[in-house]
């Protein structure tokens, strides 16, 4: 069978950052390392991402990350998530390992087409050589 008519040209998503992609740099505003390790980057005490959403109703914020032991030893317990300055919740980071954190976002916090600033504020950081580290962030952004 022939290939059907293409419904939409593939475009990089502006509402979600896959941090292994080089294009994710456009969504990183602050606090996230430019170096990609496998499928993640280091995030510091205060990481900031910038998104644009084409739908604001029925969406959730999601972060996929790994909490290292060093973060806990530095006293880290939580990562607060703020959207356009409003606190959505806190990612519990009192245990080492992989986790996916997801939380519904009220539609009236968001406006379609305008930049949405997401701040991930950890309560600790630690030093690896001279580099300040928090946790390993794999992806973050808005999803259903």
């Amino acid at each position: 069978m022939p290939v059907p008519q293409q419904q939409a040209p593939p475009a990089p998503a502006a509402h979600y950052a896959l941090l292994w992609e080089p294009s994710a740099g456009a969504q990183i505003a602050a606090g996230i390392d430019s170096v990609v390790h496998d499928d993640w980057r280091w995030a510091g005490r205060r990481a900031e991402l910038r998104f644009r959403l084409d739908e604001t109703r029925g969406v959730q914020f999601e972060a996929v990350l790994v909490v290292p032991d060093e973060f806990l030893r530095a006293g880290g317990r939580r990562i607060e998530v703020r959207i356009n300055g409003r606190t959505l919740g806190a990612i519990p980071a009192d245990r080492p390992g992989y986790q996916v954190w997801k939380q519904p976002v009220p539609a009236d916090w968001l406006s379609g087409g305008e930049a949405v600033i997401v701040e991930l504020a950890a309560d600790a950081e630690w030093l690896q050589g001279n580099e300040r580290r928090g946790y390993m962030l794999s992806s973050a952004g808005f999803t259903l």
Binding site: H15, L53, F142, T143, L144
Partner: peptide
Amino acid sequence: RRAVVPLT
């Protein structure tokens, strides 16, 4: 790996 789900 993770793929991006369209919000629409």
